[in-house]
Write a protein that binds this DNA or RNA. Structure first.
Length: 228
DNA sequence: TACCAGGTCCTCG
DNA sequence: CGAGGACATGGT
């Protein structure tokens, strides 16, 4: 392997190690079922998880964390139950789209769908209107338990600042997938740790002095050099 | 009050 | 393609 690639691999592993040592296990995606994970993945699009939880409570109360039941409820009624998660009309439609897809191709059976390999599963999910790359990847990693690296705005911002400036979702994802072992648990934890860091430290206005990654971050070095 | 949060789709150039 | 707008609530 080329030396440069070796460096990338080491750096990505180092970042993970430092984050894990600093924050520990994150207990990411605190839900009970694959159904809930999938619905949560849609509901959390550009939305605070707290708002999503309220919606999930509503759905659970109505036994609607179940695709068979979701299939029979009407879109308007579903929208009213997930109101707290924002964009509720769109999200209601998106959930129905997923359920419709699952019904048509797989008789509402997740096991059937998840038998596909990662690539074909991703391709199929992306054809559903309302399921974009991050949502598809979240479903694959957190519901299907298959190894894929989830990229989100935190991931982009953090990696951008550290010095891995990839210009697209797929390239950034490739960076992780090519250089790390395809380990579901680790991908899960890595993503969760990046989100933790993004929320608490690497915000729009970053708190670089408190950041456990600042010694290996380009953005931080630049600021130091400018005598910030 | 204004801004932000675990995106995606559509439209236009 | 890529930028820009629409979608919407709840918390600070």
């Amino acid at each position: 392997m080329l030396k440069v690639e070796e460096d990338i691999k080491e750096k990505l592993e180092k970042i993970y190690r430092i984050l894990f040592d600093r924050y520990g296990k994150q207990h990411w995606w605190p839900v009970e079922s694959r159904e809930e994970t999938i619905i949560g993945a849609i509901l959390t699009q550009n939305t605070n998880w707290k708002n999503v939880e309220k919606a999930l409570v509503n759905l659970r109360k109505n036994n609607l964390l179940d695709f068979r039941r979701l299939h029979s409820i009407n879109e308007k009624e579903l929208a009213s139950l997930i109101r707290s998660s924002g964009y509720y009309n769109q999200k209601s439609k998106k959930i129905k789209n997923f359920v419709e897809f699952l019904s048509k191709g797989y008789g509402l059976d997740l096991d059937d769908l998840f038998r596909l390999n990662v690539d074909s599963l991703r391709t199929k999910l992306l054809k559903i209107n309302g399921i974009g790359k991050e949502t598809a990847d979240s479903i694959i990693l957190y519901a299907a338990n298959k190894p894929i690296f989830v990229v989100d705005t935190y991931t982009k911002r953090i990696m951008d600042r550290i010095g891995f400036k990839e210009d697209s979702y797929d390239k950034l994802q490739e960076l992780f997938m090519k250089n790390l072992s395809k380990d579901v648990e680790m991908f899960n934890e890595y993503h969760a740790l990046l989100v933790r860091l993004g929320k608490e430290i690497c915000k729009k206005e970053p708190l670089c002095k408190e950041c456990c990654l600042n010694r290996l971050c380009c953005y931080y070095s630049d600021r130091i050099n400018k005598n910030f």
